[in-house]
């Protein structure tokens, strides 16, 4: 069974993970720019990170027949320092033409602060100016519900963004409905301790339907599982969902959303 993992941080994973994902049927993945587990001290650190995302990782993925795409931004965890964040934003247009860049992401909020919101608004404006797709990171745990609402309000305030070109990631039972109701796409992240387990992700599909929803591993340097998408597919099969329903959420839906960027090409 072929699938797409539309959110995974391969810079933190070993080559063995590429191999195991390929064996499990992964044909394409997309890697949003995010926090590295520590704060970078200058915009030069981000320049190098963007080179890694647009040059190094596509090469590693190609070795296993996986297509690697990415998203660029200053992430919300490093957005509190406005001058650093603005320097990083000024670098993004230098990379937008690269063949594997699909849009701006993962932008959003972390602690729902004023500076985070300012930088979010500036990056929404950048996406609007360059007509880029947007991938949104919503905050963790107790900050998620508030942050999700603040982010959707900020996107609407811009006035130029079609919600069908924005995917709001890391939804859970308390945020999925408000995201889908406003016309956005929603992503479910499959984590062992926080966010969704494969079981709860399938519960959400059963409760809210399978339109404009995708599943991802968000595998990174913390507790996470790069094979969690195929595990959620197994969970669907275990409950008697059809192969067509499994293919819709694990392949067709991400393909439909991502194909809004003409650079995204995947067979099938």
């Amino acid at each position: 069974m072929k699938y797409i993992d539309p959110h995974i941080h391969m810079v933190s994973r070993t080559i063995d993970d590429y191999q195991r994902m390929a064996q499990a049927g992964c044909v394409a993945l997309t890697e949003p720019a995010f926090w590295a587990g520590f704060d970078r001290r200058s915009s030069e650190g981000f320049y190098d990170y963007f080179r890694q995302l647009t040059v190094v990782e596509p090469g590693r993925a190609a070795g296993y027949g996986i297509q690697h795409y990415c998203w660029l931004c200053i992430n919300p965890k490093e957005a509190e320092d406005l001058s650093l964040a603005r320097e990083v934003i000024s670098l993004i247009p230098l990379f937008l033409e690269r063949p594997n860049v699909l849009g701006i992401g993962e932008i959003g909020l972390n602690k729902n602060s004023k500076n985070e919101l300012t930088i979010l608004e500036e990056q929404i404006a950048l996406a609007s100016e360059y007509n880029e797709l947007i991938l949104v990171h919503t905050p963790h745990l107790e900050d998620k519900l508030k942050g999700t609402k603040l982010i959707m309000d900020a996107i609407k305030r811009n006035g130029n963004i079609d919600p069908g070109r924005v995917l709001i990631d890391h939804v859970e039972e308390h945020t999925v409905e408000i995201v889908l109701d406003q016309g956005f796409w929603a992503g479910m992240t499959l984590y062992p301790d926080t966010k969704c387990t494969p079981q709860r992700a399938v519960d959400i599909l059963e409760m809210y339907g399978n339109e404009r929803l995708w599943m991802n591993s968000a595998g990174d340097w913390g507790p996470s599982d790069p094979l969690s998408v195929p595990k959620a597919c197994n969970e669907m099969a275990r409950r008697g969902h059809t192969q067509a329903e499994i293919e819709k959420v694990s392949f067709k839906n991400p393909k439909t959303f991502l194909s809004q960027c003409s650079k995204f090409k995947v067979d099938g």
Partner: peptide, 24 residues
Amino acid sequence: LELFSDPSMEPLESAAGLKGAFGT
């Protein structure tokens, strides 16, 4: 999840020194 969520809607003054979350 709603019980575990921050019910306020005002943005935080500053996130300096803050990264993680408590879970409720």
